[in-house]
Amino acid sequence: MKKTLLILTRNPLSLLGLILVTIIVLAAVFADFITPFPEHVGAVVDFTNFNQPPHWPNIFGTDLVGRDLFTRVVYAYRVSLILAAVVLIIAVPIGVAIGLAAGYLGGWTEYVLMRITDIFLSIPPLVLAMSIMGLLEPTLTNGMIAVTAMWWPWYTRLVYSITRSEREEGYVLAAEVIGASKLHIMFREILPNCVPSIVTKMTLDFGFVILIASSLSFLGLGVQPPTPDLGSMVADGAKYLPDSWWLTVFPGLAILIAVFGFNLIGDALREILGGDQ
C-alpha cells in the first residue's frame, strides 16, 4: 500500500491525479469551513445578487436565485462522492461474490448466474437506470439504487474471467487436495488474486459513477432541488448559454476534473498492480 503510493507520486500524471482527487475529497469533507456561504446549499433566495458573473466574494459567480455557485459546486462534490462511494460499496461485493461463485463453481451455477448478468449487461445502462428511476420517486436514495443496479454486472464479468483462469492454478488444486471448503477457496485463495483488478476498476469507476449520476440529474431524474448536484446545475444553466456561461462551465469543469483525476489514478494503478483484464 505504502509502496503503491510512493510509485504513484513518481509519475507526473498519476501525481496530478492524486493531487486533484485529494483536493476534491478534502473540499467535500471540509465544505462547511471552506465555502463562503454554506447556507446557500438550501432554498435561499437573494435577488439583489442573482445571475452575476464571477466576482469577489462569489468567485464562480451566482445562480439565477442569487446563490454562491462556488459553495454549491463544493457541496455537490460531497453529494457526488457519497453517491459514488455508496454505489460502489454495494455494487462491488454483490458483483464480486456472483463472479467468484460463477467462475469457481461452474456447471449450472455458472450458467444461471452468467445469463442473469448478461441480461443486465444487454440493457443500455442509462435506459436501465432511467426505467428504475421512472418507477420510483426520483430521490437520492433511488438514484443510488438505480446506479447500483447497473453497476454490479461489470464486476461480475471482471471477477468471473479472473476466477476462470485462477481456478486452473496449482494453488487452487493444492487447496482442494487438502480438503479446504469451497468458500475458503473462493474467498481466501482466489479473491486476493482479484483484488488488484477490483481496486483498479473501482478507482476508474469512481469517476464514471459521478458522471452517470450527473447524466441522470441532467435528465431530471437524479437528485432533486434544492440539494446541489453537478448534473442538474449543468442542465439548468445550459438554457442560459452563452450569456450566463458560468452557470454551466464551473459545474461542468468540476465533473471533468473529478472524472479526470480518478482516471489518472486508475490508469496508474492498473500499471502498478498489473490488474488488467
Partner: peptide, 14 residues
Amino acid sequence: LVQQNPLSSLNPRR
C-alpha cells in the same frame, strides 16, 4: 500432492 510447477502451486497473495 506435490506438483510440478512451484511457481503456480503456492498462492502468490498469501
